[in-house]
C-alpha cells in the first residue's frame, strides 16, 4: 500500500548547501504528509479515540465535583477544559519516532538511515512534523470542534494567551519528538523495546499533566518535576490557555520551554552519535 509514495526523496546534487538541505527536509515533511493520508480509517477512528478519552475523564471529574466546588483552584468547567484541551493538543504533538526507529532496527534497515546524506534526527523529526501538520487538519481541529460542541468548554483566556498557547504547543511537539528520538536510540541495543515504549507512554501521560494537573501532585513530586521537561509538554501550554499563567509568566514559561526543546534535541543527537558508533544490524 502506497509503496510509490514511500519512495525516498532524491539525493541533493552538488554539495549540501543550506537551500538544498532545506529542500531535503521539506521533502521528508511532504512524504510524511502523503504517507499519513494513506491511512484512511485511522483518522475517522482517531477522533473517536480522543472523544472516548475525554469522556472517561469527564465522568470521573463530574463525580468528583459533586462534592466540592473547587479543587486546587480549578472549578469543574476549568478542569474539564484542562482535560479536553490537553487531549486536543496531544493529537497534534504526538508522534511515534521511537517506534519507527525500533521497527527500522528490527527489520535491519537502520543502515539505510545512516547512508542518507542528512542528519538522522532531523529526518525523523521533519517527517513527524509532516504528520503532525496533517493531523492538525484531519484530527486536531475536528476533535476540538466536536468536543466543544458536546462539553461545556471555556474559550482561551485572551488573544495574547491564545497566541502564547499556540507557540507553546508548537514547542511541545519538539520536546516530545526529542524525547521519543532519545527513547528510539535505545532500540538499537535492545531486542524488544515494547515494554520501554509503554513505560514512556504512561510516564508522559502522567508527568506531562495530561491526566491530572501537576498542582494536584504532592509537594515533593512538584518540586522534582520542575526540573524535568515533562510538564512543558501539556501542563504549561494548557495553563497559558486557561489564563492561569499571565504576562511575564507566559514569557518565562515559553523561555524554559525553548530551553527544553534544544536540550532534548541535543541529548537525542548525542545519544544517536554514541549509539550509532556501535550499531549492530540484525539479519539481512
Amino acid at each position: 500500500m502506497g509503496a510509490s509514495e514511500l519512495a525516498l526523496p532524491a539525493r541533493p546534487r552538488g554539495g549540501a548547501s543550506l537551500a538544498n538541505q532545506a529542500r531535503v527536509y521539506a521533502e521528508f515533511i511532504r512524504v510524511g504528509f502523503v504517507n499519513t493520508l494513506a491511512y484512511r480509517l485511522r483518522y475517522y477512528t482517531g477522533i473517536v479515540t480522543y472523544f472516548i478519552y475525554v469522556s472517561i475523564y469527564y465522568f470521573i471529574w463530574k463525580a468528583i465535583y459533586e462534592h466540592s466546588a473547587k479543587i486546587e483552584g480549578f472549578d469543574f468547567k476549568q478542569l474539564l477544559t484542562y482535560v479536553a484541551v490537553g487531549w486536543i493538543i496531544r493529537s497534534f504533538y504526538y508522534n511515534n519516532i521511537d517506534q519507527q526507529i525500533a521497527i527500522q532496527v528490527m527489520e535491519g534497515k537502520l543502515a539505510m538511515d545512516l547512508i542518507k546524506p542528512v542528519n538522522t534526527q532531523f529526518m525523523y523529526v521533519a517527517q513527524a512534523l509532516g504528520e503532525s501538520v496533517f493531523r492538525l487538519a484531519l484530527l486536531t481541529l475536528p476533535t476540538a470542534v466536536i468536543l466543544a460542541l458536546v462539553f461545556p468548554l471555556r474559550l482561551p483566556a485572551g488573544a495574547l494567551n491564545f497566541a502564547g498557547f499556540m507557540l507553546s504547543v508548537f514547542m511541545s511537539f519538539f520536546i516530545v519528538a526529542g524525547i521519543n528520538f532519545c527513547v528510539g536510540t535505545f532500540a538499537i541495543r535492545l531486542k524488544s523495546i515494547l515494554g520501554l515504549l509503554r513505560a514512556k507512554y504512561f510516564l508522559l501521560e502522567l508527568f506531562s499533566g495530561l491526566l491530572i494537573p501537576i498542582s494536584f501532585f504532592p509537594e515533593v513530586f512538584q518540586k522534582a518535576l520542575a526540573f524535568m521537561p515533562f510538564q512543558y509538554i501539556s501542563y504549561v501550554p494548557v495553563l497559558i490557555y486557561l489564563g492561569k499563567l499571565q504576562g511575564l509568566g507566559i514569557v518565562k514559561a515559553l523561555g524554559i520551554q525553548l530551553f527544553w526543546v534544544f536540550a532534548m534535541l541535543a541529548l537525542g543527537d548525542a545519544l544517536w552519535r554514541w549509539s550509532s558508533r556501535r550499531i549492530t544490524i540484525q539479519g539481512g
Partner: peptide, 19 residues
Amino acid sequence: AFFSSMAATVLGFGFVLVL
C-alpha cells in the same frame, strides 16, 4: 521488557494515587 512493562502498569495507577 518485563520490568519496564511492569513500570508502565504501575504508572497507570498514578492518576488514581494522585487523585
